[in-house]
């Protein structure tokens, strides 16, 4: 593979690594919500990960040169997990 292809590949691998870490966060949040008996928040925690995957795949397969709104959306969803986590901790 040529060097230009490698830069793109490395970036895609970085997105996938990030999705893997996010899956861990989603499972931890979902577990906490399940223990507290909040099925709605379990669904929310798992839906967050689905949204993150959608953003990552859209970024990778889009024809645009720039990342578009993918980066701020990704950060926003991370902040969403912060809010969900804080809610679960304080609600206990």
């Amino acid at each position: 593979m040529s060097e230009p292809g490698l830069a793109r590949e490395r970036t895609w691998l970085a997105w996938r690594r990030t999705l893997l870490v996010a899956a861990g966060v989603a499972v931890l949040a979902a577990r906490m919500a399940a223990v507290e008996g909040e099925p709605l928040l379990v669904a929310l925690a798992l839906a967050g990960w689905t949204a993150l995957s959608a953003v990552a795949f859209r970024r990778y397969f889009s024809r645009r040169a720039g990342p578009g709104p993918a980066l701020p959306l990704f950060a926003l969803l991370t902040v969403g997990y912060t809010a969900l986590g804080a809610l679960l901790v304080l609600n206990r």
Partner: peptide
């Protein structure tokens, strides 16, 4: 630059995971 952003996001996610794990 995008990969650096993603590395920071992973750092942030790891901190969030740490917070969730601490509570549980």
């Amino acid at each position: 630059n995008e990969r650096t952003f993603l590395a920071w996001i992973r750092t942030g996610l790891a901190l969030v995971a740490g917070g969730l794990a601490t509570a549980q």
